[in-house]
Design a protein around this nucleic acid. Structure first.
Length: 541
RNA sequence: GUCCACAUAGCUCAGCAGGAUAGAGCAACAGCCUUCUAAGCUGUGGGUCGAGUGUUCGAAUCAUUCUGUGGACGCCA
């Protein structure tokens, strides 16, 4: 149990003795920011001051007199009514044993009770390379998944393929042209088509697979170019994503949703909210919370994207997920209310779907914005960026800011090998400790951490003990950047510990064995935290 | 025009179920390697938390007005 929880119970018990009944969730325990304020603090006395009509200092005194806590060697009252708790050093150093015992599992919790949660992200159209926005969505989405898993949810990573829209028709026509070109036919890629030379490779694969079979235009050949083209494009996206350490569990296809009658089901189920106007079919999303009703069937009879999208979300819910999360680009802002409102029509609470919007990424090189790739002349692709600076750096930088904040990605910094580069800084901390433990393989670790009294050691142990709470917080707020904040602080404490405390001293094996244990524990947590954002912990640098 | 988000150190950003003297990294400046990786450490300076008003014991945090920036407002995805 977290120490905070223990403290809350102690406070509740103390208040009960004073005939004050309080809901335990109302008791707030904070980590003190200042050392003079101890390790933990509660403002409970000030909260109760009004209700009890009594000076908070007197209330605090009463509470302390009735308090029965272990693990602390001092409890102080400070104006205007804080109660400060000072942790015993044994209570602190016990964290080393906990971490080493739990190993890779340290930081996990069962908060999610194995409930199934679905996170949909990337969902790029299979018509070209993944660009920077997709890459950031992939990094953040994947980290959110890793976080949810860590706190005990059963997570499904899902990619939705819009393979029924017009862009697939365009893709089919573009590939058809490339395919014909391979046979010497002088057919140009349509003006509005996809001109990327990669399509030539796809056409070559097709030529190898089917020969000249589809040179004659027919419904069959059109379908082939579209279907097989989508598959091959998707393979390419998936390979890039795997290389980026993002692995999807499920790919859902719009065509499948439609074929299974998803659209009809929406039209039937939401019948009472559907009306016709000027030849188009509208969905009355304003009945819930949207600023205008939305067209779902255009006057030419085709669907807007919203209709199959609703069907798709219902499909996800049919599969038993108790929570859906969508990771979308910030330009989908208007999407939130209409989709949530649509799901409400089917009896679901708005909160069943949470939508995270990912803000734009801008690349900078030599302090100037860097838009186009010199090599391809197109917008920079995720693959290219990974080749340039490495997957570790890309993933780290992409989650290093709140998703809702614009991200300026400094290419020079990402490649720099210095403390200015947060990725190297953190990885270097790991490599340094690894090196020490390797030099001390023959020394037995003292996992009780006896004798660790140096300020650097204490600060480090305190931070290690915060890990589980930080992971839970980062997961529940879907904020991977909080993990990078934790990592930077941890790395900084490790470097300080390394510099000021001689870790391997064969003339003082007693202290050394405790310090090495702290090394080991720090490495476990650092590797674990880096793992949460999909960044490696190298043993040598 | 309507709606939403944002505004904190020179730069990039944390902090915002109200709490103690507003933080971090970078940049700047000054120091630290005969010993485990200096890809490191230590120290210094740097702020009207965009502006005003309100709520309260207490406001960067909540409410409200204003200013500025970005985004969303299609029978687009």
């Amino acid at each position: 149990m977290l120490i905070e929880e223990k403290l809350k119970r102690c406070l509740k018990d103390a208040l009960a003795k004073m005939n004050v009944d309080i809901d335990i969730s109302k008791i707030v325990i904070e980590r003190s920011k200042e050392k003079v304020h101890g390790d933990f603090a509660s403002n409970i006395a000030m909260q109760l001051a009004r209700e009890l009509k009594k000076n908070p200092l007197l209330i605090a005194e009463d509470i302390v007199n009735n308090l029965d806590v272990e693990s602390f060697n001092k409890v102080e009252i400070a104006r205007p009514g804080f109660i400060n708790f000072f942790l015993k050093s044994e209570a602190l150093s016990s964290i080393i044993k906990t971490i080493i015992d739990e190993g890779d599992n340290y930081g996990s919790s069962t908060y999610g009770e194995n409930k199934p949660i679905n996170v949909e992200f990337v969902s790029a159209n299979p018509t070209g390379d993944l660009h920077l926005g997709h890459a950031r969505g992939a990094a953040i989405g994947d980290c959110i998944c890793r976080l949810y898993s860590k706190i005990g949810y059963n997570v499904t990573r899902e990619f939705y393929v819009n393979d029924a829209g017009n862009q697939i028709n365009v893709l089919g026509r573009s590939i058809r042209a490339r395919y014909h070109q391979l046979f010497g036919d002088n057919i140009e890629v349509p003006e509005d088509g996809y001109h990327a030379p990669e399509l030539l490779k796809i056409a070559e694969i097709m030529k190898n697979e089917v020969g000249d079979k589809y040179l004659v235009d027919s419904e069959e050949s059109e379908t082939y170019f579209k279907r097989r083209g989508t598959e091959l494009e998707l393979d390419k996206l998936n390979n890039d994503l795997k290389n980026f350490r993002v692995n999807f569990d499920v790919f859902s296809f719009e065509t499948d949703i439609r074929a299974a009658g998803g659209v009809e089901r929406v039209l039937e189920g939401a019948k009472q909210y559907i009306y016709e106007n000027e030849g188009a079919t509208f969905l009355k999303t304003t009945a819930f919370k949207d600023d205008k009703d939305r067209v779902i069937i255009k006057s030419d009879g085709s669907y807007t994207y919203l209709l199959p999208d609703i069907a798709y979300h219902l499909n996800k819910l049919d599969r038993g997920f108790t929570q859906l999360v969508d990771i979308l680009g910030a330009d989908h802002h208007g999407y939130i209310d209409r989709m949530k409102s649509s799901l409400e029509m089917f009896g679901y609470p708005r909160s069943i779907l949470e939508i995270e919007l990912i803000q734009m990424v801008r690349l900078f090189k030599n302090a100037e914005e860097y838009k186009m790739s010199k090599r391809t002349g197109n917008a920079i692709a995720m693959r290219e960026l990974c080749e340039e600076v490495g997957v570790d750096a890309v993933r780290y930088f992409f989650v290093n800011r709140a998703a809702s904040a614009h991200l300026d990605f400094d290419l020079d910094l990402a490649k720099e090998s210095s403390s200015a580069n947060p990725v190297y800084y953190a990885q270097y901390a790991y490599a340094r400790l690894f090196n020490v433990l390797q030099n001390a393989e023959d020394i037995k670790l003292n996992i009780d951490g006896t004798g660790l009294e140096h300020q650097k050691e204490i600060d480090l142990m305190k931070h290690l003990s915060l890990y589980q709470k930080e992971v839970l917080d980062a997961a529940l707020t879907r904020a991977p950047y909080k993990v990078t904040v934790y990592i930077q602080k941890l790395a900084s404490l490790i470097h300080g510990f390394y510099t000021e405390c001689r870790l391997l001293d064969r003339n003082n094996l007693e202290l050394t064995s405790s310090r090495l244990a702290l090394c080991k524990a720090s490495m476990i947590v650092l590797k674990n935290a880096l793992g949460l954002i999909g960044v490696s912990a190298p043993e040598k640098m």
